[in-house]
Design a protein around this nucleic acid. Structure first.
Lengths: 220, 220
DNA sequence: GAATGTGAAGGTTTTCACAGCA
DNA sequence: TGCTGTGAAAACCTTCACATTC
């Protein structure tokens, strides 16, 4: 594998996003028995242009063969390596409420190597009890237990009001990647990567679209 | 209110997204007692540039006063009108599983005018039973019941395998705005707006960031 | 012939910088 | 003076087009 030139030239946010899509398509193609795939075919499946696909992939290396296309299995593995989905990740979930519980039960996470191995809550009635085979720890021990368990990714699923203080503890625990479901903008240290799942904002986008009659491509 | 020049000039996807942020900040500012706010202040709260804020807002009209800034309450209402959050929306949720249940219980939706008033599932054990005060209907009646209830927005929270057929029924029911939690790309008619909540993709983005040591601003 | 990889062109979004107004 | 609104510039992202390779 050639070194990934991240840092030399900035990767576009959208490229990473599309990489996730390519990965899924490649998994499907492999199942369907494809040995190779062209940028045209790959593009078609995600409603993109072939040039876009080639640009995205070529950013990380030369994975294809001129005249032939890309070897499906190999490319799948290379994309997976780039995304970091060729390994498992130790994930902690903070806030075992409505949303939190749903996320623990979300099979796709573990199927893709994101293993939720620690649960935290601040509710005394929940602390110490088991949820889907995992004991719920006291959120006050976040920093220590996160370190002990070697957590790499944290999911914040607590009410907005307490999200920032949870965030701070997580950061103290040395976690560098966070998925935030609370609908507030969180302050994070410079070396932490945070992604937000602001579900109401998506609904707002939809209501905007309805009010302004935005459709089709403009929507996404 | 001046007419929104949507359609004359394309609104940037990112502008809509930031509009949601502005709206939240404005609500907060109003609570904090601010009467006016400058683009600088507004920008600071969302880690944007003042120019960005002004460009975004000026796209929809002239809401500020030179030398003074923007009137908080008024701007809040104007932004709300643009987003369509100054009204209530009739929402249906399809798939009352893990994720679906969590979404029904998600108070922020209703607080913002997105009222989930219909639930659908294909599980005979669930159909006819009540969930948080709402009866669960048979997914086979989607088209008819959606029309009857005047549903404007649908949330898809079913397993990926059946998402497309659910989608098709929803479209037949005349719904033009869809929030999709299934992790597949859905085919939609040209006049339908679909937004995807691909949660695993966000985790993939995080693992990408960890593997490639992407941090801070590059992340979002 | 077929399809990649890529510099250059084209398009879109963000930032700059300043005219114009309270 | 302070801050908006906005053309122009810069940065960024996507598409084109073709040389290159199998």
């Amino acid at each position: 594998m050639c070194p990934i030139p991240v840092g030399i030239k900035r990767v576009a946010e959208s490229t990473i996003h599309r990489l996730s899509h390519y990965w899924r398509v490649l998994i499907a193609l492999e199942k369907e028995g494809y040995k190779t795939v062209s940028s045209r075919e790959l593009a078609q499946r995600e409603k993109l242009t072939p040039a876009q696909v080639r640009k995205d992939l070529s950013f990380f290396g030369s994975f294809g063969t001129r005249g032939l296309g890309y070897p499906v299995t190999q490319l799948k593995e290379q994309v997976s390596a780039i995304l970091g989905t060729n390994q498992t990740w130790r994930v902690a979930l903070v806030g075992v409420g409505n949303m939190g519980s749903a996320l623990v039960g979300y099979k796709e996470f573990s199927r893709q190597g994101f293993n939720i191995i620690k649960l935290f809550d601040n509710d005394q009635r929940k602390i110490g009890s088991f949820h889907k085979g995992l004991i719920i720890s006291d959120v006050r021990n976040l920093e220590v237990e996160i370190k002990q368990a070697g957590i790499e990714i944290a999911i914040i699923a607590v009410p907005s009001a307490v999200a920032q203080q949870v965030m701070d503890e997580i950061a103290k625990g040395g976690v560098k990647a966070i998925l935030n479901f609370a609908s507030v903008k969180l302050k994070v240290p410079g070396d932490v990567c945070i992604r937000n799942e602001h579900m109401s904002m998506e609904l707002e986008h939809l209501s905007f679209a309805l009010v302004n009659k935005i459709t089709g491509k403009q929507c996404e």
